[in-house]
Design a protein around this nucleic acid. Sequence first.
DNA 1: AGCACGCCGACT
DNA 2: GTCGGCGTGCTC
Length: 800
Amino acid sequence: MFASVVVDVPTQQTDRLYDYEVPESWEALVQPGMRVLVPFGPRKIQGMVLAIKASTDVLKTKPLIALLDLTPVLTEELLAIGKWLSNETMCFLITAYQAMLPSALKSTYSKKLVLADGRLPSDLPEELQVFYKNQRAVLWDDVESNLQTMKSVKLALEEGWIDVLYEAKDQTSIKHVKWVTLKQSLTEALASLAANAVRQREAIQLLASHKDGLALSVLSQRSNAGYSSLNKLVEKGIFHLEERELYREPYELMESTSTPLDLTEEQAAVLESIVSATDQSSATTFLLHGITGSGKTEVYLQAIDNALKQDKQAIVLVPEISLTPMMVDRFKKRFGSKVAVLHSALSKGERYDEWRKIHRKEVTVAVGARSAIFAPFDRLGIVIIDEEHETSYKQEEHPRYHARDVAIKRAAFHKCPVVLGSATPSLESRARAQKKRYHYVQLEKRIGKQSYPEVTIADMRDELKAGNRSMFSRQLMDALTETISRGEQAVLFLNRRGFSTFVMCRDCGYVLQCPHCDISLTYHKHHHAMKCHYCGHQEPLPRACPKCESEHIRFFGTGTQKVEEELLKLLPDIRILRMDVDTTKRKGSHAKLLDAFEAHEADVLLGTQMIAKGLDFRKVTFVGVLAAETMLHLPDFRAAEKTFQLLTQVSGRAGRHELPGQVVIQTYTPEHYSIMLSASHDYAGFYKQEMQFRKLSQYPPFYYLALVTITHEDLMECAKEAEKIARHLSQELSDEAILLGPVASPIPKIKDRFRYQCMIKYKDEPKLQPALKQIMALYAERIQKKELQVLIDMQPYSML
DNA sequence: AGCACGCCGACT
DNA sequence: GTCGGCGTGCTC
């Protein structure tokens, strides 16, 4: 019997199957989806079994060294998904499989020099003896690599004094705990005790009230009985003692404490259509378009509940940033201990524990960020992707997958629905719903009596004209002081993503645009010129605004610290809580800050991206957006969409409870449709207008995109190869496809390597995938030599 | 990725 | 003549 194995060596040459002989004693045990230890050249490495077969074409096979799993860690379905992923995203197979498993299952390798059997350190050359003072093995990396010692090592190896040992270890150390259960009935157990054994009696009584038993240490502590007396009870056969696996975060058997809420008519109708998809095993993708506060989560919860009742499982994806304790609690309260949470803030071990609960079928609901889509369930009944439009569902490293695509692929296998939920659906999804590829369902009413907050747009150009040179408009200052004086709280939002330097006129708000691409030009220090990242258009830096001839034309960008300082100058008595990357670096500080704000320890919460999502504070009635357009002028065709989504989301933070909300959006471009339409809560209007732009400028959802990036140490070489690739592509592709570039990448040099890119816009291009693979093969050797890199991203989410 | 095999320059 | 540089190619 032979096993076809993908080895843990992510390179072009080893990206294939290797056959190994299965030792007879393991024939009944080995299954596809198990990790194995295999010999590979002189080393031992980890591998993934993809198939078992009776014969092989390979003449000289080696046997497997060890089985690393007793049950497969990947199901046949996930093995197939991995193949699909590697093909689709052009990554190595093993890279795809690694992405699907918790990192604790990945091996780390070490090379050691061990003293040969029966040898003593004194047998070795002098300079090696120091390493073996109190050990028989030394790590290769710990041996100083000077010429003399290397020579001695070589000699010692030849003489057989030492051996090289390759080790592969994963991090699956599982903690165990001593666990006791009562073996007899309470009366029986008590009867056999001596009358004066008070502590033992107490222990027995305590244990009788815990059917499932207790950890020995816990029992001892609670009953005041020592370990020796408890051990006597074990010896007597009254207690049963065993080693039990301990999860790092012992999950308390949390009872479900929340019950389904009454649904509005709207909610009930949406729920009904989702539920019937699960019931009829229909792999329908729903786009649930529900405005903030319309009760999407309750619909999710009841749809999941329905799946669970049919003995099926559920995956819920939430953007990393909103995977807060608040969010998780809602699921835990409804489904109790049936929930596993996969969060990147967990330690490797904790993450592995959560994953194991899923693997061992101890839970039926997985809540987590992007990678939770690979939860090894075998009977999926529903997949939910909340905040569907979030860009974090796309992984930026290999494998560059989009969780939404994986979800739909998995759902097709399990014949279950996918629910994409959002208040501001991505244009792609909304367009697919339009084309009936997704089933469109809507929640248009806010629950209860909440009304939309009143949104004011503050034109910063007017402020400047009126002599207000500060970064706060009069509208914002008025609303802020009023809010605080009423004893309520405010959130100030600064979009700092605007690091990319765009140039704007402070008088008329004009931003330099590329005449060919409708994308703002970025300022390049080195060339002292304005450039378009998409088509390569270049023009000199203007002295005066081309539109109004004002000289107040300059770069943009500011930080939260600066805002805090400025605000304190104007209102020295207010308490500000600043939340950004700096203040939330430490683990847990994120939650701490939010708790403090909830407890009204501050009047103003000032922050970036991270405060835009999912936060729900009782007393927040005012939200201010300091610079609405920073994101608008990023060199990204999704800039307007992102701006609209963000502004809509941020305004949703104001007045979610009894108190009415107010929003002020500061901007230099108040007439931009993404700003105007978000202020009037008009998604439909925005969709219409943005679709027009996308159609005109040939972007998704009208065209698919592929981005090929070439990097090289030498600028000329980089440009030359990029040119070659572009030529090759233009030969292969149909006339329908649009090829842009090659041009320098938005970040033209990273780590001393120059970057060029070609963008392909296409509709139906069956030859694209093969052509790209051909290019990869053509450059294989030069890539391997690290001379150049060719990076391919299908459907890139960010052009940066 | 590692590692072995293998073919050219400066040394005992 | 040999030691050792790292280019090339393989790992079931």
